[in-house]
Amino acid sequence: MTGGVFNPHILGFFCHWCCYAAADAAGVSRYQYPPNVRVIRVMCTGRIDLRFILEAFGCGADGVFTGG
């Protein structure tokens, strides 16, 4: 929290072929969106292990966005 505004700390798991590509395309089109998400690229959402998500919350993530 800074200055009373809650700025969530969010971890993203993006599929290389889908969501990651869509995010790149959003960049090319210069769409703007909130800067709160930190992305871990995986080749497929199927790679995401239950441990990863729980670990992220255990480490204090306010949210986990998995995108395929």
Binding site: H9, I40, V42, F52, E55, A56, C59, A61
Partner: peptide, 13 residues
């Protein structure tokens, strides 16, 4: 990937 998650959290972890 676990290392990335820990690095994401930084000192919060």
């Amino acid at each position: 990937i676990m290392a990335q998650i820990h690095a994401f959290a930084g000192e919060k972890c």
